[in-house]
Design a protein around this nucleic acid. Structure first.
Length: 749
DNA sequence: GTTAGTTG
């Protein structure tokens, strides 16, 4: 490796195309570099044998295929001499030309051959065996091949990656270069999605004007798109224009003007909520409007009401030996009578037992009930707690992925779910698009029961679904408050409540479950966290550093991130030893005794239990311990709960991570006996209330915060993450269009 | 400038 982050350069000619995927242009090549034959992988549209490539990339090692050169960029030259041309044309690179024909063409036109094929089909047709029609076809194909090549050269020089160039070609084809030169900001469109900065740089080199309308419009759209990443489905017009003006270096009035034009061409949508203008991208607007309309329709034509269920509730209380609180009974009644319900509440408020009663009564009434959750692990947990099979929402709706890797659901309004009721758990993780997809998949008259805790981490994708639904007060909602699982004397529970209310948690009171250890600098925070886990807690409480204690961090990076803490904790908790086998796969060390987390859903991985039962499936967020590293067999044995799972090394590297310390995000859905959290200024966008709350509520018996009081205060004060700009609440509060739903039904018939 | 979900 010559320098860090630096790309290596290679040059050679393509010997063989080992694999080529036509939909994404992923290609595996054998390239002759003079002294040796190397394997090259990367995105290569229209690569052909005989071509000379200049490659930029890095060496990687693949578990089965060994050393590979991963090309991140490349340049290629057209074959220059007749020998290279013959090799190139014979390779089948140009459809319609085979080996024999290639020979005759070269014979006829020499080193002008390629030029003739591309530009002069009439002359090409003079070669024996080529009709004029065929010559034209060949010529077109040649133009295509050369066109994308020229495009790659053109865009590549501005740092556009080959895979993005392919997208440009898909949209503009032959006219790509001209279209991009005309308006470089077309690169920022939805379908292509190259960053504004790259397009702007390209525009600058084309001497585009700073105040150019297209540039300003692109800047405005960019700000909207960029803010999807921050969870906003829309932005107040004034904020949007100010941000765009700053980005572009133009006066806000120019941005406003551009925005007006965008709204006229429906590239953006303006809505006025309570006297303030909000701007949406069309897709987000459609999505939230659809959700509100569909909910209005469900409220107007509600599912069939099931009444008189007090007897059933009493029966469940008797057989299960539980007693429901009034609020829980309210929830059960609402779900069955109205058919629509949001059930919210923090951990331990009894959501699950309430849900169980609802599901049980529905099934007793002969209804088909589908259960789903946004993550694999939440779905698995839901199955375990209810005894009914639950799937991820994506699986329930039979997801497919399009060319841009965006989800497309097979189950939708034309092909709805076949059931009477749908229950979605962990609604806080559901974003606007997934929620829209669920609504589209519901058959007419289907019940919809939504369960979640709005104080947990917000969804990854844009939207504030659970918050908007509750705040609108349109959707029947029951908020469970009473604490069942933990006693009210617990400071963990009390402080969690305070944090939700935006109050500073009690840090100085002596309690037996919640501690704050003030530390002023990074090093002492890190060292305290380590000593707590490695020696102090095991000593005073008898807790195991592997199975009982969990370190939770806001982020992965830095001295107090999971990566660094994992490294330090592992070397103390589970140091290397002679009798302890370990293996290094792609740079990561797996050692017997290590605590690991599964980071992908893998539905087919088999497991077995000690009692002989077997099954398959491990889920993102599952945690376990490596109990054996078998180098001869090339596999790891991992104990996850009461199951034993076998990973081959390749699988392990792709799906397992060290888990002495994990991010709060990854800990969602898990609970631990003891939790230790570093509290130190880091990325400000990870310093917010719900993250602190989620981390703290993972602890069952003991919670220790280590670090700065001011950081705790900042996190409590910062509820920005939950205050997302979105339209669902407003659309729900608008009066539904009188004949909206009927029109939809007619259109479908 | 950070985190993170969904599939075969």
């Amino acid at each position: 490796m010559p320098q860090e982050n630096g790309l290596l350069e290679m040059e050679g000619s393509v010997e063989n195309i080992v694999y080529h995927n036509d939909s994404n242009q992923y290609t595996v090549l054998e390239v002759d570099c003079g002294e040796e034959l190397i394997t090259v992988v990367g995105t290569f549209p229209y690569v052909s044998v005989g071509e000379r490539l200049h490659l930029y990339g890095t060496w990687t090692s693949h578990a089965t295929f060994g050393q590979q050169f991963r090309a991140q960029a490349f340049e290629r030259s057209r074959p220059a001499d007749t020998a290279a041309m013959l090799k190139y044309l014979s390779s089948g690179a140009v459809k319609g030309i085979g080996g024999a024909l290639a020979g005759r063409i070269i014979e006829a036109f020499g080193d002008e051959s390629i030029k003739v094929i591309e530009e002069d089909p009439a002359r090409l047709a003079t070669v024996k065996g080529i009709t004029l029609k065929k010559a034209k076809e060949i010529s077109e194909e040649m133009q295509r091949v050369n066109g994308i090549r020229d495009l790659m050269a053109f865009l590549g020089s501005f740092g556009v990656r080959p895979e993005d160039t392919v997208k440009v070609w898909k949209v503009y084809g032959q006219d790509s270069v001209a279209c991009i030169q005309e308006d470089p900001y077309r690169l920022c469109s939805d379908k292509i999605g190259i960053s504004f900065a790259v397009a702007d740089q390209l525009a600058e080199s084309l001497e585009y004007d700073r105040d150019n309308k297209e540039r300003v419009k692109a800047g405005v759209l960019y700000v909207l798109r960029h803010n999807l990443n921050n969870g906003h489905t829309c932005l107040p017009a004034d904020k949007l224009c100010a941000a765009a003006a700053k980005l572009l270096g133009v006066p806000p009035e120019s941005a406003q003007e551009a925005l007006l034009e965008l709204c006229q061409t429906f590239e953006a949508v303006n809505e006025n909520f309570n006297g303030r203008d909000f701007v949406f991208l069309p897709k987000q607007h459609r999505s939230e409007v659809y959700c509100a309309d569909r909910i209005h329709m469900m409220l107007r034509y509600p599912p069939e009401s099931i009444t008189g269920i007090d007897r059933e509730i009493a029966e469940i209380e008797r057989t299960k030996g539980i007693e429901y609180a009034e609020l829980q009974k309210d929830a059960i009644r609402a779900a069955l009578e109205k058919g629509l319900l949001i059930l919210t509440g923090g951990p331990g408020t009894g959501k699950t037992t309430t849900l169980n009663a609802i599901i049980r009564i529905l099934m007793e009434k002969g209804e088909t009930v589908f259960l789903a959750a946004p993550t694999g692990r939440a779905a698995k947990r839901m199955s375990e707690l209810t005894g009914v099979e639950a799937k991820t929402i994506h699986r329930m709706l039979q997801v497919d992925w399009d060319d841009n890797d965006d989800p497309v659901f097979q189950i939708n309004e034309r092909n709805p779910l076949e059931c009477d009721a749908v229950v979605i758990d962990e609604l806080s993780m559901v974003d606007a698009y997934v929620f829209e997809s669920v609504l589209r998949a519901l058959p007419i008259g289907c019940r919809l029961i939504l369960v979640g805790d709005s104080d947990q981490l917000p969804s990854v994708g844009p939207g504030n679904v659970i918050g908007d639904l509750i705040a609108s007060k349109v959707f029947p909602t029951v908020q469970l408050k009473e604490i069942f699982r933990q006693s009210m004397e617990s400071l963990i529970v009390m402080n969690a409540h305070k944090i939700v209310e935006g109050e500073m948690p009690e840090l100085s009171v002596r309690s037996n479950d919640f501690f704050f250890m003030p530390r002023e600098d990074v090093r002492s925070v890190s060292e305290t966290v380590q000593s707590l886990v490695v020696t102090r807690l095991p000593k005073s409480y008898g807790y195991s550093p592997v199975t009982d204690i969990q370190v939770l961090c806001p982020g992965r990076k830095g001295e107090l991130g999971t990566v660094e803490l994992n490294r330090k904790l592992r070397e103390q908790i589970n140091p290397p030893a002679k009798n302890k086998p370990q293996v290094t796969v792609n740079g990561t060390v797996f050692r017997e005794g290590d605590k690991v987390m599964q980071i992908k859903n893998d539905y087919n991985l088999p497991w077995s239990r000690e009692d002989g039962t077997v099954g398959e499936g491990v889920y993102n967020g599952d945690m376990g311990i490596i109990i054996d590293v078998d180098k001869d067999a090339g596999c790891l044995r991992v104990e996850i709960d009461d199951k034993e799972v076998l990973y081959d090394f390749e699988h392990a590297a792709a799906e397992l991570e060290l888990a002495y310390a994990v991010t709060v995000h990854k800990s969602q859905g898990n609970e631990f006996t003891a939790v230790v959290m570093p509290m130190f200024p880091g990325a400000p966008q990870l310093s917010y209330r719900n993250l602190l709350y989620t981390g703290i509520t993972r602890a069952k018996k003991l919670l220790i915060l280590v670090g700065k009081r001011s950081v705790v205060a900042d996190m409590v004060a910062n509820d920005k993450k939950t205050r997302r700009f979105s339209g669902l609440q407003h659309f729900l509060l608008e009066k539904p269009e009188e004949d909206g739903p009927e029109q939809n039904e007619e259109a479908e018939a």
